[in-house]
Simulated assay, not measured.
Amino acid sequence: MAAAVDDGRARREIVEAADGLFYAHGVNAVGMDAVRERAGFPLKRIYKLFPSKEDLVIAVLEHRSRMWNEGITRAERGSADPVARLLAVFDFLAAWFREDGFRGCAFINAYGELGPGSTRVARAVREQKASFRVHVADLVGRIGGSPALAAQLVLLAEGAQTTAAIAGSPEAADVARGAALTLIEADTGASRTA
Rank of each mutant, 00 (worst) to 15 (best):
A194H: 15
L183R: 10
V134I: 13
W96H: 03
R177P: 14
D55N: 07
L21F: 00
A137N: 08
E99T: 03
S131E: 05
A84M: 13
S146V: 13
G20Q: 03
C105F: 03
G26K: 01
R11A: 05
R98E: 13
G168C: 05
A106T: 07
A180F: 12
A124K: 13
G101N: 02
V154Y: 14
R103V: 06
R133S: 15
P42K: 15
V136A: 13
E62P: 00
R142M: 08
G159A: 02
D19I: 00
C105E: 10
K129N: 11
P42A: 15
V136P: 03
R123G: 06
D33W: 10
F41S: 09
V83N: 11
G178K: 03
Q128S: 12
E99F: 00
L61R: 00
L56M: 07
E70A: 08
V175Q: 09
E37S: 10
P170M: 01
S52A: 09
T188D: 08
F22H: 09
I143G: 04
V35C: 11
A4D: 15
F132C: 08
D33L: 13
L155V: 14
L149N: 14
P42W: 11
V27Y: 10
H25M: 06
M1P: 10
R103I: 00
M1L: 07
S131I: 02
I108R: 09
V15L: 08
A106N: 07
L93T: 05
T73P: 03
R64A: 15
G145E: 09
A39D: 03
G178N: 10
L114N: 06
R38N: 02
P116C: 14
T119Y: 09
V30I: 14
F102Y: 13
A110H: 07
S79Y: 05
A190Y: 08
N109S: 08
P116K: 15
H63F: 06
R45M: 05
G26R: 04
A180I: 08
Q161P: 08
R133L: 11
R66D: 04
L87C: 02
F132D: 06
A17T: 03
A194T: 04
R9W: 04
L156F: 05
N28G: 12
K48Q: 09
C105R: 01
D81G: 03
F97T: 00
A164P: 10
D33S: 15
L93N: 04
L149E: 10
T119K: 14
T182W: 15
L93M: 02
E16Q: 13
R98D: 05
A165H: 12
K53W: 02
T163G: 07
P116A: 15
Y47V: 08
S118V: 04
A75F: 06
A2N: 11
V35T: 07
D19R: 12
F97N: 03
A186P: 00
R12S: 10
A194I: 05
L181Y: 04
N109H: 02
R98L: 01
A151E: 14
A39N: 01
E185I: 05
G112E: 06
A164G: 07
G71N: 01
V121G: 07
G178H: 02
A24Q: 09
E37L: 07
F22D: 10
V89T: 06
L139H: 14
G115Q: 10
T163F: 04
A167C: 10
V5E: 07
A80L: 11
V27F: 13
R192N: 04
A17L: 01
R126Q: 12
L155C: 12
G40C: 04
V121Y: 05
A186H: 12
T193H: 03
E171G: 11
L21I: 01
